[in-house]
Write a protein that binds this DNA or RNA. Structure first.
Lengths: 191, 191
DNA sequence: GTCTATACACCGATAGAC
DNA sequence: GTCTATCGGTGTATAGAC
């Protein structure tokens, strides 16, 4: 029982404007506010046009996450080939990640199968990439990580930066300086 | 322009059933699914009755978080007076905290002022309590935490358990064993 | 205290004009 | 490719019967 509707290209200007608008609405008002009307208003188009580019609103959310995760993955893959890969990953997690959006997508993933699969795929891929990078660097520089492991450090870098950014954006900073100092100490060992 | 509506007691059986139902819906379907119709169905009452106990649905969400945070705070205050307070806090964060709900509330806090204030108040209070507990225990047992600090450890215990539980519930376990081993090592120093 | 009934706004999705 | 118009469904919140 497929629909007879036709759809526009995902790389068109309007299509990308819809994704941009979706990100803005999500950041400011949460995924619950991502409706065809609200997104259309934010993108400067009419409500019906959203459905020319995306079959459902779930498709919009999925495309939005896929675009972001592809961009992030591309950055990581470039960073791990840089001169100081562990520092580069930490800086990316600290400065480029949008914790507010991540929280929204993770909350979405809890009850939206398509998003969940994409989020999980992304998490596993990036964590393995980061852990392997940390392992190689530690080996090359003769750093003994014990009692930590590359995978533990990769996990903690992600969890810490996510919560740091999330709390900062709502005004909580208790313990943040101490945590950053601890990771700075860890990063120094990779110099 | 206050409404003339009257409201029922917050400690009544039905009122608490509404909060129980709200938690279940939130856990299973996310904060977006917390509607008066859905909550009423889950609580086995009629939709209109929700508004006899709560003025708005935002009130329901707020009351839901306040109840949980009060319970959690009471547990923490008992745990810090126990024989092995750092272990007790870790066990609580690991086993008793519902990461899925925490994620939902943090996401909600990003665009809901009332929830944000409550979440922030709770985070600051518990983190200080935990950091102070770690500091006292380290001093009493002669544990040198450097290069970490009590506040950094308190932050990392929270961030790690939150992400561990969240990822576990959606099927990602990459690096989890290593992180748990690292915290086990840290906890051993407090024995 | 719990119910039914209802007003009104908003949402997803489609059809069809231009 | 973009628009207008419209459908049925669902959401919040209130009024009033029992």
């Amino acid at each position: 029982m497929t629909s007879s509707r036709r759809f526009g290209r995902r790389d068109s200007e309007t299509s990308l404007a819809i994704l941009d608008a979706t990100e803005r609405v999500m950041r400011a008002e949460g995924y619950g506010a991502v409706t065809s009307r609200r997104v259309a208003e934010e993108a400067g188009i009419r409500q019906g046009l959203v459905y020319y580019y995306y079959e459902t609103m779930d498709e919009v959310l999925l495309a939005c996450f896929q675009r972001r995760s592809a961009q992030a993955l591309a950055r990581y893959e470039s960073e791990v080939r840089s001169e100081r890969p562990v520092h580069a990953i930490w800086d990316d997690l600290t400065n480029t990640i949008d914790a507010r959006l991540v929280f929204e997508f993770v909350a979405l993933a809890n009850h939206h199968e398509g998003i969940r699969e994409e989020v999980n795929r992304f998490l596993v891929k990036t964590r393995r990439l980061e852990a392997e990078t940390i392992r190689k660097e530690a080996e090359a520089r003769g750093v003994d990580l014990a009692p930590a492991t590359p995978a533990a450090i990769a996990f903690l870098m992600y969890a810490a930066t996510l919560v740091l950014a999330s709390e900062s954006s709502t005004g909580v900073t208790e313990g943040h300086d101490d945590v950053r100092a601890l990771f700075d100490w860890m990063l120094k060992r990779f110099e």
